[in-house]
Measured scan of single mutants.
Amino acid sequence: AQVHVDGVTYDFDNPEEAEKFAREMAKRKGGTVEVKNDQWHVE
């Protein structure tokens, strides 16, 4: 699973880890999390 944050792509073998990371980053940035094509996007 991939997580996109500020133009940087992070690869995770485990989708749950990807989701956890995406939500944590969004919380830190005060942003939102979107899922597109099985990829997490932190805005």
Rank of each mutant, 00 (worst) to 15 (best):
R28V: 14
A1H: 14
R28S: 13
M25Q: 11
D38M: 11
V35M: 14
E17V: 06
V35N: 10
E17W: 04
E17Y: 04
D13L: 10
K20W: 10
E16N: 07
H41L: 09
F21G: 00
V3Q: 01
M25S: 06
P15F: 09
R28F: 13
T9M: 09
N37V: 06
F12A: 00
V5Y: 09
A1L: 13
E24D: 10
D13T: 09
N37K: 07
G7M: 03
K20F: 08
E43L: 15
G30I: 02
E17K: 06
E34T: 15
V3R: 00
A1F: 15
D38V: 04
V33S: 05
A26E: 05
K27F: 13
H41M: 09
T9N: 04
M25G: 01
Y10S: 01
D11T: 14
E43I: 15
V8K: 12
Q39D: 06
D13K: 10
D38E: 10
V35G: 09
F21T: 01
V3Y: 00
H4F: 13
E17C: 12
D6I: 02
A26F: 01
E24S: 05
A26V: 06
K27V: 12
Y10H: 04
G7S: 04
T9Y: 08
V3T: 01
A18I: 00
E16R: 10
G31F: 08
T32M: 07
R23T: 10
E16V: 12
G31H: 07
E24K: 06
A18Q: 00
T9K: 08
N14W: 07
V42D: 03
Q2R: 12
F21Y: 06
K36I: 14
Q2H: 08
D13N: 10
G30S: 04
F21S: 00
A22S: 02
K29M: 15
D38N: 15
W40Q: 04
H4S: 06
V35K: 14
T9D: 03
V35A: 06
V8M: 11
D11C: 15
K27S: 10
T32A: 06
N37F: 08
W40D: 03
Q2Y: 07
E19Y: 07
V35P: 02
V33I: 09
F12T: 01
V42T: 03
V35F: 15
G31N: 04
V3S: 01
N37Y: 08
V33P: 04
N37S: 06
V3W: 00
R23Q: 10
D13I: 10
M25H: 06
F12G: 00
V5A: 06
P15K: 12
G7N: 06
D38C: 14
A1S: 13
R23F: 13
G7K: 03
F12V: 01
V33G: 03
P15A: 13
G31C: 14
V35Y: 15
F21E: 01
F21D: 01
K36Y: 12
F12K: 00
D11Q: 13
Q39S: 10
K20V: 09
D11S: 14
N37D: 12
K29L: 15
T9P: 04
Q2G: 02
A22D: 01
V33R: 00
E34Q: 13
K36H: 12
D13F: 07
G7T: 02
R28P: 05
M25Y: 09
Q39Y: 06
H4W: 13
V42E: 02
T32Q: 08
Q39A: 12
H41G: 04
A1T: 14
E16Q: 12
A26L: 05
E34S: 15
V8E: 09
T32N: 07
